[in-house]
Design a protein around this nucleic acid. Structure first.
Lengths: 352, 352
DNA sequence: CTGAAAGCGCTTACAG
DNA sequence: CTGAAAGCGCTTACAG
């Protein structure tokens, strides 16, 4: 009943220990912890002194259980190894931390089945909400079944497949993919290019479709021919992009420039060009998408679209926090602007 | 008392709902959930059917409270934006997930005060253990005070300052910094370099000291002069490294090669060299450390030391899980090997 | 201003 | 094999 004031090292200090230590009830200690104005300031001082003396650590899980609240948010990413998503995660964690939430991390490695497993596991920890950058091919129905109707979801970066969900739509934060690709294409056209390819990415992914649409828009507005064989698919990484490079030159006349799906693809393409003796930024123009750190440092530096992933992370967290405040508000769809960053990889076409 | 079988959308389904739904006690449902062999298989089937029908989600926090267990591990990183740590985080999360733990993420942005705040906040969620890659300048005493004696800590990548803690030492996973830098230096020497600088990093950081020691070791073993002005400090990033480049050439004869603190510094140095009209990989040899993705793709590709951060992440998680199994085992200190990766940036010295 | 009591959603001896 | 009861560490009306 009475609690030793130098408690056994293997027992956590609880409210009861503190209460016993200064002869008040657990209720009073709880009020002190939560900063209630009801407590006499003399009592408060005694309790605080005792809290410090015993090295009390608040058990937030117990409090959450009692109050039926949550102080965590799940962040599920398709590719943490990609610097773009790592920066995004840093931004999310920063903003959630400031708001008193802790980030439950899950990474899916671009696998839909891992995504299901990760969502299921994280849900058991009762997050207040979920921020999801879905794996390629992830389906709306599957996700909805995993998370149920109680936990708000914010979708980042990609749409889900078959995303028809009129009953319970989710919030979205997307990049302005179409406008970005259009800006890159217009820039190449203004440099004098007439034969421009769209290179890399999976045609099935929504972000790739949007970027390709922006490319088409610019090409058609300029009255330029869109040659089907100049749309070349690849996995969205360097290695596969380098391997697909040759496809650009199967038919003559070949393109003089390529709008790439993203920076990883663009860097891989530049590598492939070098291996063929074609100098990117001199003989062939290249643009990327994302502005990852190495874009500025490649040789030649890469013209690309900046999407400031850390700021996007903060924005995603803010949107989710807003949703927690107003569960009934209509779903929001935010499209974050991207900015064209000009560097040496986007050269004029070689003189004919 | 009786529970509606189509429960109100705003109430979570609990064990009591399931129990009521199939006329058993909550205890029985709990046993089913935990796979106890005590339950009659007919009863089990009925309960499982009901769990599925009502869309029950296990409340792990409540179970953890009752059982006085934890199913989370805190991962606190000094720089999530750095691809090395992002990969590490992916590896940690992967291994923890397989073991049934969830990752509580915290990033400190290389700030000691944020580290304190993050540790304090994560501790309130009762993690079973902590994996910490400390911010520069983080002190052992501070960290110990933050986390107490109950929560095991695994230190990754860097030592803490003043790390004398004989009572309660923590586990460590470090890279073999000294050997790595020695290998790089020996490689440059074998190419014919005689004037070799050690470039970048903060001399106060333990990893920098270790790498510098490896450099010294190789230089001295080869009987080469170690010129104090060839040890140049910089922040461990590209921008500052590029800015410090000039310091290599203040005195003549200047070095013909530099062992860099890490890849970010090496890439920045290469940029600075270009800006001075010096071609890295032709006029000047450079080595890095980490083998980040862009090392293979820079121009010239960067000779560096591979530390396979994702595998390190899995290893860190395994070490911590092992500690949870054997709380009383003596502290472990593991030094992970690193491997020299030869690329074009480490050229022979220009012909004299 | 403070305390006694109930309860958040689970688990675990203990009876039966 | 199943149920009644107690309890994990908190919070919150409700008395006093």
């Amino acid at each position: 009943m009475s609690t030793d004031s130098t408690p056994h090292a293997n027992r956590k200090i609880t409210l009861a220990d503190i209460a016993a230590g200064c002869n008040v009830s657990r209720a009073t200690v709880s009020l002190v912890l939560r900063g209630s104005p009801l407590v006499n300031k003399h009592t408060r001082a005694r309790v605080e002194e005792e809290l410090h003396r015993q090295g009390y650590v608040y058990n937030r899980a117990a409090a959450n259980l009692r109050r039926r609240t949550s102080s965590s948010v799940a962040l599920v990413l398709n590719d943490l190894g990609n610097p773009f998503f790592a920066e995004f995660a840093a931004g999310v964690d920063e903003a959630l931390g400031s708001a008193g939430y802790v980030t439950l991390l899950g990474s899916t490695g671009e696998s839909v089945s891992r995504e299901q497993a990760v969502l299921g596991s994280l849900l058991e920890h009762g997050p207040a909400g979920i921020i999801l950058s879905p794996a390629e091919g992830s389906e709306a129905g599957q996700v909805r079944r995993s998370i149920g109707l109680r936990t708000p979801l914010l979708l980042f970066n990609r749409e889900l497949e078959g995303d028809i969900d009129p009953d319970a739509p989710w919030d979205r934060l997307m990049l302005d993919n179409q406008r970005g690709a259009r800006l890159a294409t217009e820039h190449l056209i203004s440099l004098g290019h007439r034969r421009i390819a769209f290179f890399g990415g999976h045609a099935s992914s929504s972000s790739c479709q949007q970027r390709h649409a922006g490319y088409l828009e610019a090409m058609q507005a300029a009255g330029l021919a869109v040659v089907p064989s100049w749309r070349i698919e690849s996995a969205p990484n360097r290695v596969d992009a380098a391997a697909q490079c040759g496809a650009l030159f199967f038919e003559q006349p070949a393109p003089t420039a390529a709008v790439c799906y993203n920076d990883a693809v663009a860097l891989g393409l530049m590598l492939g060009l070098y291996q063929r003796g074609i100098r990117p930024g001199r003989d062939f123009a290249v643009t990327g998408f994302d502005d990852i750190a190495e874009a500025a440092l490649s040789a030649p530096p890469l013209t690309t679209l900046a999407s400031t992933p850390r700021a996007r992370g903060r924005q995603a967290a803010e949107m989710l926090l807003q949703r927690l405040r107003e569960p009934q508000a209509p779903a929001r769809r935010t499209v974050a602007p991207v900015q064209l960053v000009l560097r040496a990889s986007s050269c004029p076409p070689p003189a004919a």
